[in-house]
Simulated scan of single mutants.
Amino acid sequence: MLWLLAHDQYPLLGRGGVAREVWALYFHWYGVLSHGSFPSGDHLWQYPPGAGAVLLSPALLPGLTYFQAFVTLTLFTDAVITLVLARAGTRPGRSLRGAALWTAGLPLLLHVPLARYDVQVTAFAVISLLTVSRRPRVGGAFAALGALVKVWPALALLGTPRGRGTREAWTAAVVTAVTLLALLVALFRNPLDFLRQQGGRGVQIESLGGTALMLARRAGWPGHTRYQYGAVEFVGPHVHAVADCSLGLTVVAFALLLLWRLRARRWTPATPYDAALAAVLLFTVTSRVISPQYMVWLIGLTAVCMTSRHTTQRWVAPLVLAASAVSTVEYPALYGDVINCTWLGCVLMVVRNGLLASAAVVSFVLLWRSGRPAPERPESDASPRNPDRIPAVFHTGG
């Protein structure tokens, strides 16, 4: 991955576009943040204020350039995730498959993970999930830290079983978020300007709605693509309707997850992991934007699921890995075909987004089924002579 990043001027590696995100855009924001202000009026700045801390972190390594320091810290974070997954996999009832999946799965995205800060965001979610059952307050705090950087890690707390532990986790998350947000408001100017820029996002060409518009363009739709809000988006008739449809599907996804939470009566040690993966998959496929680096989140959450022998998400893992591999072909290798909506670009996006949509559906269905009460078993099946027949789950009331 480092070699690819050092040679990203090659056409199939993006002609320098992948690394440019760090040494040009991130470094520009670093300069603004260093003067005590979040980017104001910058339509490319669409991130919660916690992202500012991540972009300022290369200052911790003053002997390196900004680009070198950023990549070094990203590699260090990658190592931390691997260590946490490996340590979790050595506990009773756990598996090292999670650490193996992360180690083998991340390079499927080539050098993109090293030139984005999504590895850092994923670290917060991974640590939160792997600690919340034993130390709810710590897990809640890490979920809040991640949410302040890129919102979605808050979903790590979705599947915690009802009871004192969940209350402690959510209380710690709220306290941590409010405290740090107040600190950022006190130290920096314009910390909430990102909300105005986020609302202007359209339909990115790599999203599910973008795939529909790509096919429509091949059929004669008069729209075209344009670089805006930090991504290549569609412009033309009915684009707003497609964006509204994506938002509607996101609301439906949220409603389904809430319904699962209310109706679930059966939890296993892996339920918090499975719920987080299902939730992020649903929100990803219904989003107006599906950038290639989003796959880092899904690989990380899938790896967490695979650390538990009780996970229901084994069939989801190959779908996520396949989607990651196709994402690499789509970006950076053949991004020009996607932008120009060639037939090759259309096929790539149909396959990648089809895999993601399939993963989301399979993941949620498996999560839903796992929440049903276990069927009654004959008393003899749960006798000391058959200890392996006792399910490793616990039930909760209404």
Rank of each mutant, 00 (worst) to 15 (best):
T103Q: 12
T82A: 12
S128L: 03
R134F: 04
V121Y: 01
T103C: 15
P113R: 07
L106C: 10
P107G: 05
L130E: 01
A125Q: 07
L83A: 10
A123H: 08
V84L: 12
V132T: 12
V71F: 05
L129Q: 02
A69K: 07
V112M: 11
A69Y: 08
L130G: 00
V71Y: 02
R134A: 13
T131S: 14
H111S: 07
L114V: 06
L75Y: 10
T82G: 13
V119Q: 09
H111R: 09
S128W: 02
L129P: 02
L109C: 07
R87E: 05
G140L: 02
T131R: 07
V132K: 00
A99G: 09
P107E: 11
F67V: 05
S95D: 09
L110F: 08
L85F: 01
A69I: 08
A79R: 13
D118H: 11
L130V: 04
A88T: 01
P136F: 01
D118T: 06
T90L: 12
L130K: 03
I127D: 00
L83K: 12
Y117Q: 11
I81N: 00
G105F: 12
A86F: 15
S128Q: 06
P92N: 06
L73W: 11
T103K: 06
F124Q: 02
T72D: 03
F124Y: 14
A125W: 03
F70V: 12
A79F: 10
V84R: 00
R91V: 03
A99S: 13
G105S: 10
I81S: 01
L96A: 15
L109K: 04
A123L: 15
G89E: 00
V119A: 05
R87H: 06
Q68I: 07
L110Q: 14
T131N: 07
T122C: 07
V121P: 02
G140M: 02
P136A: 09
A100Y: 08
A86N: 03
A86C: 06
A86W: 14
T131D: 04
T72Q: 08
L85D: 00
A69D: 06
D78M: 08
A125K: 00
G98H: 04
A115Q: 11
L75G: 02
S95T: 07
L96I: 13
T103F: 14
A115L: 10
G140N: 05
A99E: 10
L130W: 00
L129M: 14
L109S: 05
A88N: 01
D78I: 02
A86I: 01
R91P: 03
P107C: 08
G93L: 04
V138D: 08
H111I: 11
I81C: 08
R134N: 04
A104Q: 05
T82C: 10
T122V: 10
T90G: 14
R87K: 13
A123T: 04
F124R: 01
A123Y: 03
R137W: 09
